[in-house]
């Protein structure tokens, strides 16, 4: 990835089409993802997010259009693409019968990296799983499982990581942990495509957001660009109550302030003067 000087898009999708039986799931999807950026594919259930990711991850053949990762066509160069990518989240499971450590060692062996055991121990430490490393992954909490899942997908340093609904089903604290991991990854130069149905997640993480609706991208831009699509904000004065999430995090005592930082009240945009 890093060898490319004039940085063409890490992911380029043009006119992507896919039907299942008579249902047209993708009707010409276009978007590009810049290297090292976080791109959010936003949409409700059934919008085609997962289908798009499955095609990009070489698990599914498209009916029409092209998709490239790192300049390689996912249809014709699937093998090379697989060296560049990693898949995690909703539908890429961890092995529940193996321990966390064994899961990591297995993936390291399958990725053909040298010294799988050391790679596993290193990742366990990095993701705060060292103590749980010997336990079956089936006994993990949702947050631990997702951390293991993400750790597994980092083995072999893939240039592009697909995260399919990475925080679905997580408690607020774990969600913040996952968000931090994702921003750290992007800061390290990894390109990230994530799908989500949570607007605030896209807002917090993504450099660019594309809205996928009924098989088409109906909007694509930075948060600021998307905001400009709407009429100018009207100024209203509304009493701002803390959200239940903010209360929860404040009581539990894990830094909502540090995680959410300066844009602490971001979830109430519409009512704010901007």
């Amino acid at each position: 990835m890093t060898a490319i000087i004039d940085s063409p898009p890490a992911i380029r999708v043009q006119g992507l089409r896919k039907s299942f039986r008579n249902v047209e799931v993708l009707r010409g999807v276009d978007f590009e993802v810049a290297p090292g950026s976080i791109f959010a594919l936003l949409g409700s259930n059934g919008a085609g997010k997962t289908t798009t990711v499955r095609i990009l991850a070489t698990l599914l053949a498209a009916d029409g259009g092209t998709a490239t990762v790192g300049g390689l066509d996912v249809g014709t160069h699937a093998g090379r693409v697989r060296e560049e990518i990693s898949l995690t989240g909703q539908f890429a499971a961890v092995d529940e019968i193996l321990s966390g450590r064994e899961n990591l060692v297995l993936i390291a062996k399958l990725r053909h990296v040298p010294n799988p055991a050391a790679v596993a121990d290193d990742l366990l430490a990095r993701f705060d799983l060292t103590d749980a490393g010997g336990r079956k992954a089936g006994t993990y909490s949702g947050g631990m499982r997702r951390r293991l899942d993400i750790a597994m997908s980092l083995i072999g340093n893939p240039g592009v990581v697909f995260l399919d609904e990475p925080t679905t089903g997580l408690d607020p604290q774990s969600r913040i942990d996952v968000w931090r991991t994702i921003t750290d990854l992007a800061a390290g130069g990894t390109t990230i495509l994530l799908t989500t149905q949570h607007l605030d997640e896209a807002e917090h993480l993504a450099d660019r957001i594309a809205i996928l609706h009924e098989g088409r991208i109906i909007a694509n831009g930075t948060l600021a660009e998307l905001r400009r699509l709407l009429p100018p904000t009207t100024v209203e004065y509304v009493e701002k109550h803390p959200t239940l999430e903010e209360i929860f995090l404040a009581i539990v005592g894990t830094g909502p302030a540090s995680a959410r930082g300066a844009d602490g009240a971001a979830s109430t945009d519409g009512t704010r003067e901007s």
């Binding site: 499955r54 991850a57 070489t58 698990l59 093998g79 697989r82 060296e83 990518i85 990693s86 898949l87 909703q90 539908f91 890429a92 499971a93 961890v94 092995d95 993936i107 399958l110 990725r111 053909h112 597994m152």
Partner: peptide
């Protein structure tokens, strides 16, 4: 059905 094969098949194995 559990998805672990998706993970394997998205890797260069």
């Amino acid at each position: 059905s559990g998805g672990i094969i998706d993970r394997f098949q998205s890797m260069p194995i």
